[in-house]
């Protein structure tokens, strides 16, 4: 790690100017391709709508969809916040205490094979309609990536580094605050990024099974009515929510771990 050198081919400033435009150009290409395929193969609009129809759906229903996006976003953020708190906490316990690791970790992995989409209706039975089942569903999907990333981060400390800080007679709290936690942060943020996009999925699943609001609810209803343009508009909004949240996590990451290899933009050559 100490000898890592990251050399960016272009200076950081220039790279940032163009970085955000590239995926947009690619996206525009994909939309054109989509339109061409629908026209060329004469696909009926009840299977795949034309991009223009989706745009029209946005014009007619955009305002309502934006309003419906609010509860979905709140549920996502709630589930993600719980994932952060409990995920990092669980990772700390698993990495810090051998018995917790041997008893809890295997069960946690085991529990991940249960399809959460299938148990989501149960939350409606337990917690009723409304926000709670959505938040819990988002939490269940977002929790595990944080734990896995956190455990990996906390456990990947160089043994020499541990010896070093132990030779200074560091307390457990000092070792955690000065070594384990900052060391684990890059890995934890990698987990956060996976978690926040999965939390969107979790929130939508929650809205599928027990809600009368949110994008997930509109999505399901529009499938039922064969309103495909509306449904595609919903998908676009969900993707946007995921992208914006992902980007926000990345902004926080750049603030908190500017030192990590993935964030370095300049290299200072030394004799």
């Amino acid at each position: 790690m100490a000898n890592d050198r990251v050399v960016s081919p272009t200076p950081g400033v220039r790279r940032r100017d163009h970085a955000w435009a590239r995926p947009l150009i690619f996206l525009a290409l994909l939309v054109v391709l989509w339109d061409l395929i629908v026209r060329l193969f004469d696909i009926p609009p009840y299977l795949i709508p034309k991009p223009w129809d989706v745009a029209l759906a946005f014009r007619d229903e955009g305002g309502r969809l934006m309003l419906e996006a609010i509860p979905t976003t709140i549920a996502t953020l709630g589930g993600f916040a719980l994932s952060v708190i409990f995920g990092v906490g669980t990772a700390m316990l698993i990495a810090g205490f051998k018995p917790v690791e041997s008893y809890v970790y295997p069960l946690l992995v085991f529990s991940q094979s249960i399809p959460k989409v299938a148990v989501a209706p149960l939350f409606v039975v337990w917690f009723g309609f409304g926000m709670t089942p959505k938040v819990i569903s988002a939490f269940l999907l977002g929790f595990f990536p944080v734990v896995v990333a956190g455990v990996q981060g906390f456990k990947s400390i160089d043994p020499d580094m541990r010896d070093l800080i132990r030779s200074m007679k560091a307390s457990r709290l000092q070792t955690f605050g000065m070594l384990s936690f900052p060391h684990a942060l890059p890995a934890i943020f990698a987990g956060f990024k996976v978690s926040v996009t999965l939390a969107v999925v979790g929130a939508v699943v929650g809205e599928f099974v027990g809600s009368n609001s949110g994008i997930g609810y509109v999505l399901q209803r529009s499938i039922g009515n064969f309103e495909l343009p509306t449904m595609f508009a919903c998908l676009v909004i969900l993707a946007l929510i995921g992208c914006v949240l992902f980007w926000l996590v990345e902004v926080v990451e750049r603030r908190l771990v500017p030192w990590h290899a993935s964030q370095r933009v300049d290299v200072v050559a030394t004799p």
Partner: peptide, 14 residues
Amino acid sequence: DIGIVFQTPVLMAW
């Protein structure tokens, strides 16, 4: 009363 130097510098990257 001891200071240690290891084979790798083990400096904290942050």
